[in-house]
Design a binder for these strands. Structure first.
Lengths: 164, 164
DNA sequence: GCTATCATGTTATAGTATAACAACCCACGC
DNA sequence: GCGTGGGTTGTTATACTATAACATGATAGC
C-alpha cells in the first residue's frame, strides 16, 4: 500500500461533490467541538475548495469582495487562521497558497504532491513517510512538532509515469 | 545509521571554521564549474553563514548596506538566486529565510530540522527519507523533481530528548 | 580595442501578511 | 430585559517579501 491519497489529481473525482462533502464535514466537526464556523469562515472554506488548486489569499479576497464589499486582507487571513488551526485548510509553504484539507478527521501531517504544470495538488497521509521522518529526527534528539513535506514535480496527467 | 547530519545544532561545532570551510568549498566548486563567484555573491554567502540561523533577505540587505550603500532588494535576491541555483544556499520555505548549504558537493534534497525556540537549523541528507518519499510518489504516478522537507520542533538543547 | 554576455545599479511596483484599535454581536448570568 | 464579556469582524495603516524593467558597468574572448 502506498498510503492514503486523500485528494486526487484533477479529473480523477467528482469535484462538486468533494466540496460539498468538505463543507458538511467541517460543519459537523465544528459542531462537535463547539467551534464557530461563521458564515464568513464557511464561505472562505467554500472558496478554498472551489478551485482544484492551491488558492492564494488575495485571490480569495477578490472573490470575497464580489459579495462582501467590506472585505479586507485581515478578513481573509483571519478566516484562514481559524481554518488552519482547526485543520480544515492547509497552507502550502512553497507556494504561499492554501488548499482544503482532505481528511480533517484523520491524524495527519501534511504531505503534498504539487504538479508544477497544472498546479494540481494531492494530499497524502502516508504513515511510513511520517514515521521515517519522526524516527530520524528523534534519533538526533530533536522533538518533532510539525512536518512540512512538499513534493514538486509532474502529476500523472502532465507527464508523470504510470502508476504501478 | 540515522544518515548524515550536515549541519549540527548550535554549540556542537566550531562556527567560525565552518563558515571559512563553506567559503573555501564555494570558491573551489565555482572554479571547477566555471561559475563566477563575484565579490558580491561571495559576500552574501559569507553573510548567510555569519549567523547560525536562517537569515532573511532584508537582514542580509541591511548588512550589505553597511558596506555597500547602493545595495537594493534585487542586489541580495539576485545573489541568493545564484547561490541557490548552484546549491550553495537553501531557502527555508516555512520561514522565508535562507541558510548556507552544508554539503554543496553531495547530491541532496534539502531536509531541515528547525528549532522554534532558538531558531537553529540542522540540515539532514537522509537517503532513507528521500527514497521513501520518492517511492511513494512514484507509486502514484508522480514524477518527483524537488523535495521540500522542513521539520519544526525543539532541538536537543531546547528541550528535545537526548539522542540515543 | 570590440563586442557579446553576464553582472550590477536603479526605480518602481507587485505580492504577502500583520498591527492596532473600533465596532458589532451574541451567549450567559443576573 | 439588561448588562457584560469574549469572540468576531470592520477599518486603516503599515510591515515584510519579492520581482519587473530598464540603465549602466565589468569581463572574457576574439
Amino acid at each position: 500500500m502506498a498510503g492514503d491519497v486523500l485528494s486526487t489529481f484533477r479529473g480523477v473525482h467528482d469535484h462538486g461533490r468533494c466540496t460539498d462533502d468538505a463543507l458538511a464535514t467541517a460543519e459537523a466537526l465544528c459542531a462537535e467541538k463547539g467551534l464557530r464556523l461563521t458564515a464568513l469562515r464557511r464561505r472562505v472554506l467554500e472558496l478554498v475548495w472551489s478551485r482544484h488548486q492551491p488558492v492564494r489569499a488575495y485571490d480569495l479576497l477578490e472573490d470575497l469582495r464580489a459579495e462582501r464589499r467590506r472585505a479586507a486582507p485581515p478578513t481573509v487571513y483571519r478566516a484562514l487562521d481559524f481554518l488552519i488551526a482547526n485543520r480544515l485548510v492547509h497552507r502550502i509553504e512553497s507556494l504561499n497558497a492554501y488548499v482544503g484539507c482532505a481528511g480533517p478527521r484523520n491524524p495527519h501531517v501534511g504531505q503534498f504532491l504539487i504538479c508544477r504544470k497544472c498546479s494540481a495538488v494531492a494530499e497524502l497521509n502516508d504513515g511510513e513517510i511520517a514515521r521515517t521522518v519522526a524516527r530520524k529526527a528523534r534519533g538526533l534528539g530533536f522533538t518533532v512538532e510539525r512536518q512540512t513535506i512538499e513534493i514538486a514535480g509532474l502529476c500523472p496527467q502532465c507527464g508523470g509515469t504510470r502508476a504501478a
